[in-house]
Simulated scan of single mutants.
Amino acid sequence: MIEFVFTPDDVARVRFAFSPLCEMVRSLRVLADPSGHALHLPWVHAVRPRLRGLGIEPLREVVPPAGYYPDFLTPPPVGPLPDLDAELDIVRATPPEAVAAELLFTEGGAPPSRTRLLMAADPERTLQTLVDLLERYWAVAVEPFWPRIRDLLEGDVLRRTNALAVEGAAGVFGDLHDAVSWRSGTLHVDRRWSFRGGLAGRGLMLVPSVFVWPNVSVMVPPYQAMLSYPPNGVATLWETGPAAGDRKDALAALIGRRRAELLTALATPASTTELARRMDVTAGAVSQHLGVLRACGLVTGHRMGRRVLYVRTPAGDALAQS
């Protein structure tokens, strides 16, 4: 069991970010064990042919299907807006002694593999090899799918940031994951290993991740404490065509079929591009319908960086759920 004991200062420093690097590293586990991550099978089938000849065996060696992988591969995000190049620069700056120590660490004290021993014997060269492979792997396996992944992550950050402002820590942690619970100022995370301690006034970084599904991932001090969890709506990530479900005839008759579909799809925040992909229509058509829904007070937009995410208003929620 992991137990983070919060002070008032720590509660004030709960913040959100997401990480292209963390997604990329965790996706390697999905490839290694698709049966344990069945939600992502459409991605696995699409990516496997692209990996032929890429030579990612060293990455597979250091990122096993389960258990520990070196912490230096997934440093906590330094800001709310992701920048893969900046994250890789942080990895490149890892001290050689830290690279070697983390490559040699194994759960349960089992001896490291011969390959791990060879990698740890030349940590500087190993680090450069791993970063180079991560860049190549990103280009073929993650970057083509990044826009839809980013939309889902940004939507979750928006939703939970609003919950934090309105309901405090209990509103954020209440439905984060079945393994996570908040009681009397302590965050409990059900894991196979144990930790209990404070956060030294540095707070907690919450990092939604599609590829961590169906689990959660925790990083504890002396690193920046970080909890990574599946975002709300992750089950819709690889959907194409109109959103599934029985559309209410009365709602469609009132505002039109496409607008009813849009309002239903906005149960989780999404961008115009993501909505167009999920509904299999043009982005222009989505923008036109969103304009009508916004003018009626049923949806609103929130800018995140250069992009706008749309979400239902309370009136939109009431109409969609009636």
Rank of each mutant, 00 (worst) to 15 (best):
H177L: 13
D178H: 08
A179C: 01
V180Q: 04
V180H: 03
S181T: 15
W182Q: 06
W182C: 07
R183G: 03
S184E: 15
L187I: 10
V189E: 04
V189G: 13
D190Q: 15
D190M: 07
R192F: 15
W193H: 15
S194F: 15
S194A: 14
S194E: 14
G197Q: 07
G198N: 01
G198E: 02
G198F: 01
L199I: 05
A200W: 02
G201S: 00
R202A: 08
L204R: 06
L206D: 09
V207A: 08
V207M: 03
P208V: 01
F211L: 07
V212D: 05
V212Y: 00
W213R: 05
W213H: 15
P214R: 06
P214S: 10
N215M: 10
V216H: 06
V216G: 05
V218D: 04
M219T: 12
M219Y: 09
V220Q: 12
P221L: 09
P221K: 09
P221G: 08
P222W: 03
P222G: 03
Y223L: 08
Q224P: 10
Q224I: 06
M226L: 15
M226C: 09
L227K: 04
S228Y: 11
Y229N: 06
P230E: 05
P231Y: 02
N232P: 01
V234K: 06
V234N: 04
A235H: 06
T236K: 03
L237R: 00
T240I: 10
P242R: 02
P242V: 07
A243D: 01
A244G: 07
G245T: 13
D246R: 10
R247S: 11
R247H: 11
R247N: 09
R247T: 10
K248F: 02
K248A: 14
D249L: 12
A250N: 09
A250L: 11
A250R: 11
L251K: 13
A252F: 09
L254P: 07
I255F: 08
G256F: 10
R257W: 13
R258H: 12
R258E: 11
A260K: 11
A260C: 05
E261P: 02
L263Q: 13
A265F: 08
L266K: 11
L266M: 14
A267T: 09
T268S: 07
T268C: 06
P269A: 11
A270Q: 12
S271E: 14
S271Y: 13
T272A: 13
T272V: 15
T273S: 04
L275C: 09
A276R: 14
A276N: 08
R278N: 04
T282D: 02
T282K: 03
T282Y: 01
T282L: 07
A285K: 00
S287I: 01
